[in-house]
């Protein structure tokens, strides 16, 4: 039998989805950093995490994105978004004083206490394009959690609040289980925080 008739197949990549997911991870990271500064509820939620805590969000498998030798040559805003060189991932760090900071996508020298891992690029796409709510995605095993489960719940709750801030009701209504009423979150607060978080996330952080 001629085995060459059945060649080995190395599957390709989905660059567009990689790009989208990479950017979204960056936005999520920066938005959380800002929201923790400007909103009490998010701050209180994230205060439940221990200090000196590193959180990682990434798309599995990490090794599918080898550290290219020219990673350092690229401008930092490219690598920060988390594209290509380091795989699609982002790190959030809570320091000793309890400040949350987005610390880029370079995994070197960072040890994650909690990793939220999307099981595949398609899973990340489903979640980050709001086709599945966070809870549904968790139910469907679109992401797994490595580390303490309670911490991941805290993180998901904070993320839910930030989503309500950032996205119009039509979209965030899909992403959270119960959209907060006016009595829980006033329109004023919502829109004001939406503007502030967007501006600061893309500028000073």
């Amino acid at each position: 039998m001629n085995i060459n008739k059945y060649p080995e197949i190395v599957p390709g990549r989905k660059f567009l989805k990689e790009f989208y997911v990479g950017i979204m991870l960056w936005v999520v990271g920066r938005a959380l950093q800002v929201a923790a500064k400007v909103d009490k509820e998010v701050k209180a939620e994230l205060a439940k995490l221990p200090n000196n805590f590193t959180l990682r969000m990434m798309v599995a498998p990490e090794k599918a994105f080898p550290l290219f030798f020219y990673a350092k040559l690229l401008p930092s805003f490219v690598t920060d978004i988390g594209l290509l060189p380091y795989g699609i991932q982002m790190f959030l760090h809570k320091d000793k004083e309890g400040n949350i900071k987005y610390i880029g996508a370079d995994p070197k020298g960072k040890k994650a206490d909690l990793s939220v891992i999307f099981t595949s690029i398609e899973a990340a796409w489903l979640v980050l394009s709001f086709q599945e709510s966070t809870a549904t995605a968790y139910m469907h095993g679109r992401f797994v959690v490595e580390g303490d489960l309670p911490h991941s719940l805290t993180f998901v709750r904070a993320l839910d609040i930030v989503e309500v801030f950032l996205l119009p009701k039509i979209i965030s209504g899909l992403a959270v289980k119960r959209y907060p009423k006016w009595s829980e979150m006033s329109l004023m607060r919502k829109f004001w925080k939406r503007i502030v978080i967007y501006i600061r996330a893309f500028t000073i952080g």
Partner: peptide, 13 residues
């Protein structure tokens, strides 16, 4: 109660 995983799969928040 916020720290228990079962709250994720409840239909209502």
């Amino acid at each position: 109660m916020m720290l228990d995983g079962a709250r994720m799969s409840n239909p209502e928040e």
